[in-house]
Design a protein around this nucleic acid. Sequence first.
DNA 1: ACCTGAAATGAAAACGGTTACATTTTAAAT
DNA 2: ATTTAAAATGTAACCGTTTTCATTTCAGGT
Lengths: 334, 334
Amino acid sequence: MANIRDVADSAGVSVATVSRTLQQPERVSPKTRNKVMAAVQAVGYKPNLMAVKFRSGKSHNLVVLVPTVANVFFARVISGMQEAAAELGYSILLANTLGNSEIESHYAKMVSTSQADGLIQLRAHNPFDASMVNDNGLLPMVNACEVIDDGQYPVVSLDNRAAAKAMTEHLISLGHSRIAMIKGPNSSPLTQDRLAGYQDALTQAGISFEENLLFPGDFTLQAGYNAGETIACLKDRPTAVFCENDETAIGAMQAFKQANLHVPNDISMAGFDDIAFSAFVDPPLTTIAQPAEEFGRTAVTLLVDLLNGKIRKAPKVIMPFELIVRESTGKALG
Amino acid sequence: MANIRDVADSAGVSVATVSRTLQQPERVSPKTRNKVMAAVQAVGYKPNLMAVKFRSGKSHNLVVLVPTVANVFFARVISGMQEAAAELGYSILLANTLGNSEIESHYAKMVSTSQADGLIQLRAHNPFDASMVNDNGLLPMVNACEVIDDGQYPVVSLDNRAAAKAMTEHLISLGHSRIAMIKGPNSSPLTQDRLAGYQDALTQAGISFEENLLFPGDFTLQAGYNAGETIACLKDRPTAVFCENDETAIGAMQAFKQANLHVPNDISMAGFDDIAFSAFVDPPLTTIAQPAEEFGRTAVTLLVDLLNGKIRKAPKVIMPFELIVRESTGKALG
DNA sequence: ACCTGAAATGAAAACGGTTACATTTTAAAT
DNA sequence: ATTTAAAATGTAACCGTTTTCATTTCAGGT
């Protein structure tokens, strides 16, 4: 492969002139500029970006830790990240962590070994350990979607508590008072916030909270289906089910159908995320829309600002949500 | 940040010895090894991987061009790639191209500028142009899922023609003879192969092919829904619909439901891909299962072999498919 | 104790750019 | 024509590693 020296020789100038021609053309006379450009073509020069990155100390890579790319919501977030990163001249190193700390560590290490300039974490977990932290303290990271809100890192999240409250209020306004909830993993702050919002709405409406209307889940279709089967068999069945994400709701609806329960006549269903499928299931799912792509874009923008020293105190960005009422929720009967 | 020279000074040895201690410990006496290790700890040394990659000329990055990460099937493929790449010591630079040639070019250029060692393309399109190709000819690439089969690059694909034929035969065996097809984009070889398989089965069964049973689509839920609406209104309605992917089928089923058509009693539905949702829609979808994660793993393995010169002639790997019969297909009535 | 080959270590070049600094060329002002 | 500042270009150091080659140390055989 031709290098910058070959170009310099071919053009009869110094390597510095070649570099300047390519980086800051205005600092070079038009005459030599043409000579150099011609030489670049002649020898088929393509700059070794690895060398540039090494020399400049900036990799222009961003690591993204995503719990699972198979989750449709995350797929949208990633899509937004890609877009913003491309605009800002960064590339995304995507890590599908599957919640595995070892994988997280492996990729987090890329930041401390100069392979990436910063990291975006979509889970409420600090992937850096003592061995990675460098002299000057914190490593550049932005926490998005599901966040640890300790003020150390910039954060972009949703007011999950308010959103869950809004959805629960919607169900209450339809006359429901026995409202079940299929949760996410208990360890997730996101689950706790949504649970809190659910309780807020109950309390405000004077409905007492019942522990046994809570069902475990893990954001997958299968978990939703399992919980749905359980709920369908309950003697004192709830009249509405609020699921912590759409996959869970879709799984549960399928279980209800197989149990010959009609949604929403027998039981109302609500989800969270507004993934594309939710508008195309039967019945179309009432849910909370999150600006997923915008989450990704914001996280990247924030991280790049952080890298450029444009951020003093870790900002906290709260994204807006929207209650999308479709046909899976209806008046409570009986 | 401490560098290798700091370690050398702290340990009282040369930088060469430090490098050897870290790369090939057996080439260094146990005594100095300990000294060096202690010094590494003492100064908090973390090798600058950017420098290593630059020096070695190997980035250990692989670019993956995916038409859209929002497609659930591709998400699974990517997941498999991640896994294999991690095992082999490579990182994935993911590019969400959205079919945009400019984005493809941008990322493809990473290979010619030494930012990545090779590329995996999930679309039937050569992302390299004349400006990227280097002296020694072809750039390292593997083409997976939807492929251009010109023998230039290693390929990992499915026998889409055989799979489509198998599905069509299944429908025919249930007594269907008016079988519609909702296609993917016409430009896609994948679409052409599946169409050919569909025709193979018809021909074999002595059923004449009708051009007007073909409906356009683009692999999205919405396109499926649109086609479904059209089909529902047909005077001479087909009794079965074979969709080129599951999203399309799910979209179309929703349209049928809104038109009060029962699946499979009024109309049988078949998909392709076996995405997770397909088992949880109503009714569960008959489809063709593709080993998506295995696609990704194989593509990465093949690319790494190619990079290591372990491949002479571009291999062609054909992955197995499986017909998954669920409840969306039934006997033709009437 | 001495020689010899192997093992361990060190010195320095190399990878391919960027950039601070030095030098030359150019154009404008006298 | 001469001076002078600005513009253009060149020289060489530098980024942090790896690796070749030279040198030193070591252990084993006489």
